[in-house]
């Protein structure tokens, strides 16, 4: 490592923040693009599992709330891709790489959304898991990314309230409605437990080395369990893991999550991966002419 890079590493590890125009090592830039692009992809692909339920929302209020919630996610992807763009990768390339399967998106967005219960669980628990990772990014060494995270976290916290409200209404409703929630929790538990990634030690994580991330994966998962398992139990729901318990030292114990499944899913072999990417590709191609018209006008 040359002296300039060494100095840079010490600076970011010591809590220093970097702006777009500042000098940065190529490796740092490449890591930033990869990490932030995957976040942008996840916000955009995260729209699709909820999108079809916008059309099935059972009351006018739910329709409005869900439309606004999903709109936020699209807005997040727009903000995040702008950050990637400033780092040197255009949005059009990000979208092309996404639909071509050359870049990744988060594991939870590769699964089907089967019922209105899933809609509640996604907004409540998936967004809760996400906000834990996103809050830790408020301290990211790359300042433009950390700044937009403030807005994103603020909006995500509303999504959790919306999700919780959907869930509470179902739990206070009929038996069939309570069953919808329990089935959804059972379905989503596996993906939620792998959401934060394997328990790789922080000092071996390259994203932590550059202080792009400042929180270890297991730390995030523990925070999620501590915040949400008691709430899940309080509502009279169960978690499909016999081993799940909080030890006297405050650490949650759980059955080993299915890491092979996580690997399969994020490398593009999830139950809905191909279908969702194909759907997104279809419209990216179908409406390419519109972007041409806009670009010609701007030129």
């Amino acid at each position: 490592m040359d002296a300039r890079t060494q100095e840079f590493v010490e600076y970011v590890q010591g809590g220093g923040q970097v702006e777009t125009g500042d000098w940065m090592p190529d490796e740092y830039r490449a890591k930033l693009i990869k990490f932030i692009e995957m976040h942008g992809n996840s916000e955009l692909m995260g729209v699709l599992p909820e999108r079809e339920w916008i059309l099935r929302a059972p009351t006018l209020q739910r329709k409005l709330a869900l439309t606004a919630k999903v709109q936020d996610e699209v807005g997040h992807s727009q903000l995040i891709y702008r950050v990637v763009e400033d780092l040197g990768k255009p949005r059009s390339q990000c979208l092309q790489d996404l639909v071509d399967g050359r870049s990744k998106f988060h594991n939870v967005f590769h699964y089907p959304t089967k019922t209105w219960g899933d809609v509640g669980v996604i907004a409540w628990l998936v967004d809760a898991a996400a906000i834990i990772s996103q809050k830790a990014l408020l301290k990211c060494s790359y300042a433009p990314y950390a700044r937009i995270m403030k807005k994103i976290c603020w909006e995500e916290s509303f999504h959790i309230l919306h999700g919780r409200d959907v869930i509470l209404t179902l739990m206070n409703g009929k038996d069939e409605q309570r069953a919808l929630v329990q089935e959804a929790v059972d379905r989503w538990w596996g993906p939620l437990m792998t959401f934060h990634g394997t328990a790789i030690p922080a000092d071996e994580d390259p994203m932590v080395f550059w202080r792009i991330k400042s929180q270890g994966n297991e730390e995030a998962r523990q925070q999620f369990l501590d915040g949400y398992v008691p709430q899940i139990w309080e509502l009279g729901l169960t978690v499909p893991d016999q081993e799940l318990r909080k030890n006297d030292d405050g650490v949650w114990e759980y059955s080993e999550p299915d890491w092979d499944e996580l690997k399969r899913v994020v490398t593009g072999h999830g139950p809905m991966t191909a279908e969702r990417l194909e759907f997104r590709r279809r419209f990216l191609e179908q409406e390419a002419w519109v972007r041409e018209v806009v670009l010609t006008e701007a030129a």
């Binding site: 955009l44 409005l64 439309t67 709109q71 419209f283 519109v290």
Partner: peptide, 25 residues
């Protein structure tokens, strides 16, 4: 609201979602 997630640009995705919300309101 069917355009959510698949509009020609992300800006239009957000715009059409706002329009949909207004109409439903």
């Amino acid at each position: 609201s069917e355009w959510t997630g698949i509009a020609p640009t992300l800006e239009e995705d957000v715009a059409f979602s706002s329009i949909a919300q207004n109409e439903i309101g």
